[in-house]
């Protein structure tokens, strides 16, 4: 399968953030959810992908091209949605369009108008008066109006109300219909991913933990609950991290089947949420570092 984004052995340290030997591949035609706690390096990675930052070492390839030689070709095909306001505050959407439109060869005015109508965006109000959700819709409108093949979103749903988050997911579903678009988005609202993400890429402390099909996570990982007497040095090896209390233990395993065989009916196995995985991985990381 074709990769739209390929990061290989990227190292970057800046402002106290570090990305270490990061290798990520994002597959064409799918939605990849990019998760990790605060300070895990999500924004840094997205900035590296957008060439807003340059890596200290390693290689970045987008659509099979590198930024050194093909910066403009690459960016012609990318649409971006950021968490922060990136518009001139005193301009209206209509004026912003006049500035952004000439940058793109594939600009489609009809598509722009279509999404302005669909999102009910005001063309003649200053950008600074728009709500966060509106600005996000505006960014998305610009991304869709030049038929971007790769849409990169940094925390697009943070600060949005649940109704609009749901609407956004519907829009993304529509986009994915013909299979030639790729979406890569970071979020810490992991429940948004349940409905749309095909792959999950998880980073922690600037390191790549895994990239997996979403359903594989359910197949491989489990939350295990049982009594403390089941734990010993050997069985504890099966867990990423364990939370012990007086009433028993709760742990995360990446070997659901093995644990099921090992403990049989003596434990309860539950499907973990992405939050469980993030929480326990962080805990486990602290234990072993």
């Amino acid at each position: 399968m074709e990769n739209v984004i390929e990061l290989q052995h990227i190292n970057k340290s800046f402002n106290g953030f570090q990305v270490k030997d990061l290798s990520i591949a994002v597959k064409k035609g799918y939605v990849t959810g990019f998760i990790g706690g605060n300070g895990a390096g999500k924004s840094t990675t997205i900035k590296l992908i957008m060439n807003l930052l340059q890596q200290d070492s390693g290689s970045i390839s987008i659509f099979g091209m590198n930024y050194m030689q093909h910066e403009k070709e690459i960016k012609q095909r990318i649409g971006f949605v950021y968490d922060e306001n990136i518009f001139y505050e005193n301009l209206t959407l209509k004026e912003m369009k006049k500035i952004i439109q000439p940058a793109y060869k594939n600009w489609d005015d009809k598509a722009f108008q279509y999404f302005v109508d669909q999102f009910e965006l005001p063309l003649n109000k200053k950008m600074k008066t728009l709500s966060k959700g509106m600005k996000m819709k505006a960014s998305l409108t610009f991304a869709l109006a030049h038929h971007a093949e790769l849409i990169i979103m940094d925390e697009p749903t943070s600060g949005l109300d649940p109704i609009f988050r749901r609407e956004l997911l519907n829009i993304l579903h529509d986009l994915m219909q013909n299979g030639d678009k790729t979406i890569f988005f970071s979020t810490h609202i992991t429940t948004d991913l349940d409905r749309i993400a095909d792959y999950i890429t998880f980073i922690q402390n600037g390191k790549h933990m895994f990239t997996k099909e979403f359903y594989k996570i359910e197949e491989e990982y489990a939350i295990v609950k049982g009594t403390l007497d089941l734990l010993d040095r050997e069985t504890e090896q099966e867990f990423i991290a364990i939370r012990k209390t007086n009433s028993g233990f709760e742990a995360l395993t990446a070997h659901k089947n093995r644990v099921a065989n090992l403990f049989g009916d003596t434990v309860i196995l539950e499907n973990p949420t992405l939050e469980d995985i993030m929480y326990y991985s962080k805990k486990g990381g602290e234990l072993y570092v």
Partner: peptide
Amino acid sequence: MRQLAKDLEISVITTKR
């Protein structure tokens, strides 16, 4: 697959599987 994924509000990879 993509239509079904949209209708069911689930990811494409799930219907693909």
